[in-house]
């Protein structure tokens, strides 16, 4: 397999752009680009995690933003109670996301197809309303995070630039981890279960526990995105877990290329870029974005990366 095919070039270019964005932002004196790039990368981690279960495992979760919300709220609530150490906040965010994903997974993975979509959606909305009911933490107004996660001087999340590269490195790590995961024994079972679950059972694999594990891994990774997002916006609110946010993640995955490991990163970048450009044209930017998405789904089934490579196997 050629390493420098069109799809790998796009992934490399995306990473190069993200790596250089801070320099450009400083040059044109528009710190906003730094902000945009960081948001792209944080949501890319979320989309990457969704793609693990949706693209590779065939589990179309319509509630994946919940784990971002939980990760963010963990950091927010910790900060509210003056627990600002990142060494406590972040692992806790991952652990709680994982625990919730485990419970939600056990419930929702008993169903398939449309029912799975509906159950994940219902569980997500339940969690969303739980967030709204948390009056102590601002209810639907949300909660301002006054103090960023503190890593005892090791890394400075409060500094825009160093936080940017923290996110950059974490995204690269998540990509590397996904890459390994998909090509491992576990990844083969996950993809096999999507292609033909009955056959998977027939050759001797209890599929449920593997799907559940994938669901928990994806939820945990999204929880990380949440913890980052709380530090990015210095603010958390239930809206982060709203079903439309879950929809955005699905769109990012579709846009970049479902079933290609790096696709969601390109998808998240493209999504936010289009949102930015189009909302400059009109307040109702979705009017243009909607038809564009339809075209992508109709004519580029594998999303942007799939369109560029047009070949099988799909793990690049």
């Amino acid at each position: 397999m050629a390493l420098l095919n069109a799809r790998n070039l796009v992934v490399l270019a995306t990473f190069a752009l993200l790596a250089l964005a801070p320099a450009y932002a400083a040059w044109v004196e528009t710190p906003f680009y730094l902000d945009l790039g960081r948001r792209m990368m944080i949501l890319a981690i979320g989309a990457l995690s969704l793609n693990l279960i949706m693209g590779f495992g065939g589990m179309i979760s319509f509630g994946h933003a919940v784990y971002i919300g939980i990760g963010a709220y963990t950091v927010g609530i910790c900060a509210f109670h003056e627990v600002t150490s990142g060494f406590v906040q972040w692992p806790l965010a991952l652990a709680i996301s994982a625990a919730v994903a485990l419970v939600f997974g056990v419930i929702s993975l008993r169903t398939r197809g449309v029912y799975f979509i509906m159950i994940t959606l219902a569980l997500a909305q339940m969690t969303f309303y739980l967030g709204i009911s948390l009056d102590q933490y601002g209810g639907d107004d949300g909660l301002t995070v006054y103090a960023p996660s503190d890593f005892a001087g090791l890394i400075d999340v409060d500094d825009d630039l160093s936080f940017y590269y923290v996110v950059f490195v974490l995204l690269a790590l998540c990509l590397w981890f996904s890459q390994r995961l998909i090509r491992s024994r576990f990844g083969m079972v996950l993809q096999g279960a999507r292609q033909n679950e009955g056959r998977m059972e027939a050759i001797g694999v209890p599929v449920f526990r593997y799907k559940l594990t994938a669901f928990v891994i994806a939820g945990t990774m999204a929880g990380l995105a949440g913890a980052l997002l709380a530090n990015h916006t210095d603010f958390v609110n239930p809206e982060m877990a709203h079903w439309t946010r879950s929809g955005d993640l699905i769109i990012m995955v579709l846009l970049g290329g479902m079933g290609s490991i790096a696709g969601p990163i390109v998808g998240a970048a493209a999504f936010l870029l289009l949102e930015e450009l189009l909302s400059g044209v009109t307040e109702y930017w979705q009017v243009i974005f909607g038809p564009f998405l339809i075209l992508v789904v109709l004519y580029a089934r594998g999303g942007i990366l799939g369109f560029l490579s047009r070949k099988d196997g799909g793990d690049g």
Partner: peptide
């Protein structure tokens, strides 16, 4: 190979390249 894998213990192996 997936069928062989199914009979070679569990598949909770996350990092080694299966191919």
């Amino acid at each position: 190979a997936l069928a062989v894998q199914a009979h070679d213990g569990h598949s909770f192996s996350f990092f080694r390249d299966v191919r």
